[in-house]
C-alpha cells in the first residue's frame, strides 16, 4: 500500500512540489495503478534481458555510435537558445547559487 509519505518522498526525488491536500488522492491513484500493472508478475518464463545481438525489431537494445566531428560554428545558435532561458548574463544561462 502506497502511503502519503511515500508519495511525498517520490515527489521530492522527482523535484516536484505537491500540495498536502493532493497527497491522499494521489496515493490512492498510484496504488490502484500499481495494483493493475502488478499483473505482469504472473507472466511465467524468464527470458532474461534483451541483449545487443538480438538486433532491431527483435527487442534487442543496441548502441548507435558516431564520430564526434564537424561541430557547429561557435555561437551559431547562442542567440536563439539564450532567448528562451529565464535568466541570462553575458552570454550565459544564469543558474541560482547552490552554496
Amino acid at each position: 500500500m502506497i502511503s502519503k509519505d511515500d508519495i511525498k518522498k517520490l515527489a521530492d526525488l522527482a523535484r516536484i512540489e505537491i500540495e498536502d491536500s493532493e497527497l491522499e488522492g494521489l496515493a490512492k491513484e498510484v496504488d490502484s495503478i500499481l495494483g493493475y500493472v502488478g499483473q505482469i508478475k504472473s507472466v511465467v518464463g524468464n527470458v532474461g534481458f534483451p541483449s545487443p545481438d538480438q538486433g532491431e525489431g527483435q527487442g534487442g537494445v543496441l548502441n548507435v555510435m558516431r564520430e564526434d566531428e564537424n561541430p557547429n560554428e561557435s555561437g551559431a545558435y547562442t542567440k536563439e537558445l539564450l532567448a528562451e532561458a529565464p535568466e541570462t548574463e553575458r552570454g550565459f544561462i544564469k543558474v541560482k547559487k547552490i552554496l
Partner: peptide
Amino acid sequence: VYKKTRGKGFGKEVRRRIILGTY
C-alpha cells in the same frame, strides 16, 4: 526553484506519471 517550477508548470496527469515512473 525546481520543485515550484515543476509543481506549478506540470498538470496533474504529468505529475502522476512522473511519480509513477520514479517509483
